[in-house]
Every structure is written in C-alpha cells, then in structure tokens.
Amino acid sequence: MIETMTDKALRLVRQYVLNHVDKTDVLPDFTVYIVWQCKTLQNWKFLISTDIPDGMYYELTFNGDKNEWYLDAYKKFENQCIPND
C-alpha cells in the first residue's frame, strides 16, 4: 500500500510526539488530526494537532523541489478576543 502525503504527515507528527514526551509521563492513547492543509504546485502544508491537552500544534511542510519535510512545533500560550473597533 502506498502512503499518501496526508498519512505521512500524520505519522511524522505522531512520531515526533512519541519521541518528545517526558519519559516520566504516562502517555495516553491519542489522536493526531489535520486542522488545515493545502497543496500548491509541488509543495504541501499541514497544520496538525492532537487531542492531548498540552496546547501544542504542529506545522508540517513538504518541499517538493528538495523532497524534504520540515516540522515546526508550537505551544499555544493564550487565546484572546480582540474587538474590531
């Protein structure tokens, strides 16, 4: 079976989470899901999260010219509502 770009993106983030969990924490079974994705020419971009309540989200980019993946991991610190005056 051929792995799709979407499947690979989800697998890469799952593996990142498993590799970076604090070894003293008990990691529950968790779901990795795509919040947003886009393909432009030969490049892919994914915004991915998990249902682990740690405030993390992941940006995964595939550079089709170089056949490389780039993963950025972010921590959400705050969500503010700012009125539009």
Results as ranks from 00 to 15, higher is better:
49 S>P: 01
52 I>Q: 06
42 Q>L: 14
82 I>G: 01
27 L>K: 01
40 T>A: 13
31 T>V: 13
85 D>C: 13
13 V>Y: 02
12 L>P: 01
79 N>G: 06
68 E>L: 02
46 F>N: 01
62 F>L: 14
49 S>L: 09
29 D>M: 03
44 W>R: 01
22 D>K: 05
48 I>D: 03
39 K>L: 06
70 Y>D: 15
61 T>W: 02
6 T>K: 15
9 A>V: 02
41 L>Y: 12
57 Y>F: 09
44 W>Y: 13
69 W>E: 02
44 W>F: 13
19 N>V: 00
18 L>A: 06
84 N>T: 08
63 N>V: 04
76 K>F: 00
21 V>Y: 13
39 K>A: 05
84 N>C: 09
69 W>C: 04
74 Y>F: 07
14 R>L: 00
59 E>R: 02
75 K>A: 09
5 M>L: 14
58 Y>V: 02
83 P>H: 04
6 T>A: 11
30 F>R: 01
70 Y>H: 12
59 E>N: 04
34 I>H: 09
18 L>F: 02
54 D>N: 14
63 N>D: 11
79 N>L: 13
53 P>G: 03
17 V>T: 01
48 I>A: 02
25 D>Q: 14
7 D>M: 06
3 E>T: 14
6 T>Q: 12
21 V>E: 15
84 N>I: 10
20 H>G: 04
26 V>S: 13
48 I>E: 05
80 Q>T: 10
21 V>A: 12
16 Y>F: 15
36 W>N: 12
31 T>Q: 09
53 P>L: 03
83 P>V: 00
39 K>E: 09
21 V>T: 13
1 M>R: 03
57 Y>W: 05
49 S>E: 07
19 N>D: 15
65 D>T: 01
6 T>I: 07
54 D>K: 05
1 M>L: 09
79 N>W: 12
32 V>P: 10
57 Y>K: 06
44 W>I: 00
4 T>G: 12
1 M>K: 04
84 N>H: 07
35 V>L: 08
35 V>F: 03
60 L>K: 12
9 A>M: 09
60 L>G: 09
20 H>T: 15
70 Y>W: 04
13 V>S: 06
66 K>L: 15
67 N>L: 11
54 D>L: 11
41 L>D: 08
82 I>E: 11
79 N>E: 14
29 D>P: 08
74 Y>M: 04
77 F>H: 09
55 G>H: 10
28 P>G: 12
32 V>Y: 04
71 L>H: 03
26 V>K: 15
40 T>M: 10
38 C>E: 07
43 N>V: 05
46 F>C: 02
1 M>A: 06
42 Q>I: 14
20 H>V: 06
8 K>W: 03
30 F>W: 02
9 A>E: 04
32 V>A: 05
54 D>V: 10
75 K>Y: 11
22 D>E: 11
76 K>G: 07
9 A>L: 08
34 I>F: 07
16 Y>R: 08
2 I>A: 11
56 M>S: 12
36 W>E: 15
42 Q>M: 13
45 K>I: 01
3 E>Q: 14
17 V>G: 00
28 P>L: 03
24 T>D: 13
5 M>P: 00
22 D>I: 01
78 E>Y: 07
43 N>L: 05
7 D>N: 07
40 T>N: 12
53 P>C: 01
76 K>C: 06
44 W>T: 00
